[in-house]
Amino acid sequence: MADLHIEDFHQDVARILVALYNRFPQPAALFVSDLIGEHEPDAFGVPAPRHLACFSAMLWLADEGFLRYGDTIRQEAIDQACLSERAFVLLSRADQRERDPALPASIARQRATLAQQLRDALHSGSSSAVYDTVQRCFFTSVS
Rank of each mutant, 00 (worst) to 15 (best):
A2N: 12
H5F: 11
I6N: 13
F9Q: 14
H10N: 09
Q11D: 04
V13A: 15
V13Q: 06
R15A: 05
I16P: 01
L17H: 07
L17R: 05
L17W: 04
A19M: 00
L20M: 00
Y21F: 10
F24G: 01
P25S: 08
P27Q: 05
A28T: 12
L30E: 04
V32P: 13
V32A: 10
S33R: 15
D34W: 09
G37W: 08
E38Y: 15
E40S: 09
P49H: 04
L52A: 03
L52K: 05
F55K: 10
F55L: 09
M58H: 07
W60R: 15
W60T: 15
W60Q: 14
L61N: 10
D63C: 06
E64N: 14
L67N: 13
R68F: 11
R68C: 06
D71E: 06
T72D: 05
Q75S: 14
A77T: 03
A77H: 04
D79T: 07
A81K: 00
C82G: 02
C82E: 10
L83F: 03
S84P: 04
E85K: 08
E85D: 13
R86T: 10
F88H: 12
S92E: 13
D95M: 04
R97A: 13
E98Q: 06
R99K: 05
D100K: 00
P101I: 08
P101G: 05
A102P: 00
A105L: 11
I107G: 05
R109S: 14
Q110R: 15
R111E: 14
A112R: 13
T113S: 13
L114F: 09
Q116P: 04
Q116K: 07
S124W: 00
S124N: 02
G125V: 02
S128D: 06
A129D: 03
D132W: 00
Q135F: 13
R136K: 15
S141M: 15
S143I: 12
